Simulated scan of single mutants.
Amino acid sequence: MTILEHANITVRSIEQTLQFLAIVAPDFRLRHRGETPQHHWVHVGNNQHYLALQEPRDQSRVNSKRIPYHQLGVNHWGLQVENLDEIETELIAAGYRRSMATPNETYRRRLYFFDHSGLEWELIEYFSQRFEQRYHYE
């Protein structure tokens, strides 16, 4: 079986991304923090999976002109969460903005939010353990 172990993401601010993740992934912890001549970096996650976050030292070279869903690259990150209603309330109170609308579905609820770097995150809460219900497209 193949399991996605980690993803390496360049962000504008590690600290702001850690604030976002503290709301949506409270079980994530800082695994390690490091420095290179080009980046500050951290590994943040749980015992199974983590995100490697890179913050460029030279912010003038950060390109924010990519148009998600129209150009090559990652469009969003999907995180399975619990208590999506509470997470939504906290994100809105913290000033994060919603992205696209999602349909009402019987066995899952999904929300899309942008973090401070402009990266889109899909947050999914499932209401069934059955594969065919979780991934039923209504």
Rank of each mutant, 00 (worst) to 15 (best):
R98L: 10
R61H: 13
G73Q: 07
V44K: 12
P26W: 08
I67N: 02
Q19H: 14
D85K: 08
L72K: 09
D58E: 14
E105F: 03
I87Y: 03
L84W: 01
T17F: 07
A94C: 06
Q129P: 03
A93M: 02
S128H: 06
G73I: 02
H40M: 08
P56F: 11
S99L: 01
R97C: 02
E90L: 01
D115A: 04
E35S: 11
H76G: 10
F113I: 05
E125L: 00
G45M: 08
F114V: 03
Q19W: 05
T2Q: 12
H40C: 09
R57G: 07
L91W: 02
Y107L: 07
T102D: 05
I14G: 13
I92H: 00
L4K: 06
R57V: 13
F113V: 06
Q48V: 08
V81H: 04
R98C: 03
H136G: 03
P103H: 06
Q48M: 11
L84E: 02
F28Q: 12
R130K: 15
H32S: 15
V24A: 04
W77K: 05
D85A: 12
H39W: 13
L79N: 06
Q59H: 14
Y69I: 02
T89P: 00
R109P: 00
H70N: 05
I9E: 07
F20P: 06
N8V: 11
Y69Q: 07
E132M: 12
L79A: 07
V11F: 12
I23M: 04
K65S: 13
L79F: 14
A22P: 05
H39C: 08
A101M: 05
N47S: 15
F127N: 02
V24C: 06
Y50K: 01
R33G: 09
L18M: 15
A25I: 05
T106L: 11
L72D: 06
W121E: 02
Q71S: 09
P26H: 10
E88V: 06
I23Q: 03
H70A: 10
Q133M: 04
Q80M: 09
L30V: 14
Q71H: 10
W121C: 01
Y112N: 13
E86P: 02
N75A: 13
R12T: 13
I87L: 04
T106D: 07
R33D: 11
N83D: 14
Y50W: 14
I92G: 00
A25Y: 08
Y69W: 07
R29W: 09
V44W: 13
F113P: 04
N83I: 02
R12K: 15
H40Y: 15
